[in-house]
């Protein structure tokens, strides 16, 4: 475990905490895309199929449980919590899951490291994670007022992905035989999708004004 990887995981954890904080304390999920949250729940379910079969480390198992548990509870809150669900902007969050999931599934069936169920699901989870943020970014652009917690949540998610790239570079240089094209390529695409958001996030931070994306 190198510093980039640890910081990446902690940033990911912080993003989830920020989102849960918003849901728990403000009882609001305004500006958060349920579609993206549902896609994340699918991503982690498909990726962590090995949770019961392959033990890697205590840290690894705990983090998997946390990401699975939190992704499903966020979806539950947004769908069923009687106060939280009222703040969900259903009419603005119109992205269709199937348009993202189907191409990712086809791609996972075609391009994978091994043609087994677990392996294809694992590959699918990476392709899907790469594009899972799109409904959230679309919603963000439609929302005129982006509150601080939503902005921070997306910033932390993007930072987590960027740190994973540093982790991969570090591991490639320091570990023999460390090559993993599927996470690398999908991770790169995923991080690039945040580029635009980062630009406006830093601009608003530098000028000390409220974050707003151009229409």
């Amino acid at each position: 475990m190198n510093i980039f990887r640890l910081t990446a995981d902690m940033t990911h954890l912080m993003s989830v905490i920020v989102l849960l904080l918003k849901i728990h304390t403000i009882k609001s999920c305004a500006g958060i895309s349920l579609k993206t949250q549902e896609l994340y729940a699918i991503v982690f379910t498909c990726r962590y199929l090995d949770i019961f079969t392959d033990f890697i480390s205590f840290y690894n198992t705990i983090m998997k449980v946390i990401f699975l548990w939190t992704s499903f509870s966020i979806v539950w809150y947004m769908r069923y919590h009687k106060i939280v669900r009222r703040s969900y902007d259903k009419d603005q969050d119109t992205f269709r899951h199937v348009f993202l999931m189907l191409p990712c599934l086809v791609l996972a069936l075609l391009i994978n490291e091994r043609f087994t169920f677990k392996e294809v699901m694992w590959t699918f989870s990476f392709y899907l994670e790469a594009v899972a943020i799109l409904p959230q970014l679309v919603l963000l652009q439609r929302t005129r007022n982006i509150d601080n917690l939503t902005g921070q949540y997306i910033f932390l998610l993007g930072a987590y992905r960027a740190l994973y790239i540093l982790n991969w570079i570090y591991r490639y240089v320091t570990e023999p035989n460390y090559v993993h094209w599927i996470p690398w390529m999908s991770g790169l695409v995923q991080t690039l999708l945040y580029g635009d958001f980062f630009y406006y996030y830093f601009l608003s931070w530098k000028n000390n004004v409220k974050l707003q994306l151009p229409a």
Binding site: D50, E113, R114
Partner: peptide, 10 residues
């Protein structure tokens, strides 16, 4: 084994 060894990331 080679593939498995690398699946230690989240």
């Amino acid at each position: 084994e080679f593939l498995h060894q690398q699946k230690d990331e989240l």
